[in-house]
């Protein structure tokens, strides 16, 4: 069920602090042979101008589907999306198929995990950047090309003028990701959505791409939503972080505080499982597996894997996401627990 709010109904209200993106109650379900299964369950988060917000979790936790829904990429017959996502006064979930492209690629830029696969092999990279510019801006071919070259130059691609005329297969993975970033930035977006932007890259190239993202953010004041499974990257990049598990946000807050003092057992489990917290030569792994979406346990989705789960409570009801002093936690026992974070050992 899609909320049918007209664009006027969600006219922006000036708030403090201002929100660039406000996602409320986003729920995405997909039709499967076993009925509707809920990939994203009542996810809410917001993004202020110029900040980086992380969406973190393992595969199947709904972080990518959340992003795709914001871009209108889950509008299919086999999917239903509800909730709202207000961006610069428009509800992205309610925009018509005609209105959406005016925002997508223009006010919101996107980069994906596999840069080489996201580019069209049959066109030069310069053409692909210029195409986006010409689609959204009233400029001629020459001007669009000039801007494309300037962008490549900004992203420290050597010999940009010549490289713009080359095809994607002559670019390495890190260079392809720079081209993707150039496309995403070509229309000066206010928000950049980055879905695992460095997962397919080598660590040194990853470091370079993360540096670039930080630099363009400082220069242009762009807000970034960063989807990642790597807590190290999240620590280095994100001002605020949402930890997701089985379609739900289980913990959200300031990144530094959240990592130093987790309040959800899953967050603690992820941190304790890292190599730096090895005990006696063994990693402290979270037992069990992420449940498949059609076999979610009753009650807290994490309870079957949780060392602190209390029978009778945790397996009875899905705990609400409770907001307390800037931190949101979805755990019945979070007040009683004294969880260990980074640097406590």
């Amino acid at each position: 069920m899609t909320t049918q709010a007209s664009p006027d109904a969600v006219a922006p209200e000036v708030e403090s602090p201002p929100r660039l993106l406000d996602v409320q109650g986003l729920t995405v379900e997909f039709r499967t042979s076993a009925g509707w299964s809920r990939a994203v369950d009542d996810v809410s988060f917001d993004v202020h101008p110029g900040e980086t917000v992380g969406l973190v979790g393992e595969s199947g936790c709904g972080k990518s589907v959340t992003m795709l829904s914001l871009l209108g990429l889950t509008r299919r017959a086999n999917a239903r999306v509800s909730g709202s996502a207000v961006f610069e006064g428009h509800d992205l979930l309610a925009l018509s198929a005609k209105e959406l492209p005016d925002i997508r690629g223009n006010r919101v830029g996107t980069i994906f995990q596999q840069p080489a696969r996201s580019l069209n092999p049959a066109f030069t990279v310069g053409e692909q950047i210029a195409e986006t510019i010409r689609h959204h801006r009233q400029v001629g071919r020459k001007e669009a090309w000039r801007r494309a070259v300037a962008l490549l130059d900004d992203l420290s691609i050597p010999n940009a003028e010549k490289r713009a005329g080359e095809y994607p297969h002559t670019f390495s993975g890190g260079m392809c990701q720079r081209v993707m970033i150039a496309i995403a930035l070509s229309c000066d977006p206010a928000l950049l959505i980055a879905d695992e932007p460095t997962t397919a890259l080598d660590v040194t190239v990853q470091a370079a791409i993360l540096d670039i993202l930080r630099a363009i953010q400082d220069e242009r004041g762009i807000a970034i939503v960063l989807v990642s499974h790597d807590l190290g990257i999240v620590n280095e990049m994100c001002d605020r972080t949402n930890i997701m598990y089985a379609g739900q946000v289980v913990e959200a807050g300031d990144t530094g505080e959240l990592l130093a003092q987790p309040r959800h057992p899953y967050t603690e489990g992820l941190l304790q499982g890292l190599p730096e917290n090895m005990v006696g030569g063994r990693l402290q792994a979270i037992p069990g597996n992420v449940p498949p979406l059609d076999e979610l346990p009753d009650g807290c989705h994490f309870a079957p894997r949780c060392a602190y789960a209390r029978a009778g409570d945790c397996d009875a009801v899905v705990p609400p996401l409770v907001l307390d002093d800037g931190r949101a936690v979805r755990c019945l026992r979070s007040d009683e627990l004294d969880l260990v974070g980074v640097g406590a050992r």
Binding site: G232, N235, E236, T255, L259
Partner: peptide, 8 residues
């Protein structure tokens, strides 16, 4: 990138 390193 490390979790215990300097943050954002």
């Amino acid at each position: 990138p490390v979790v215990s390193g300097p943050g954002s």
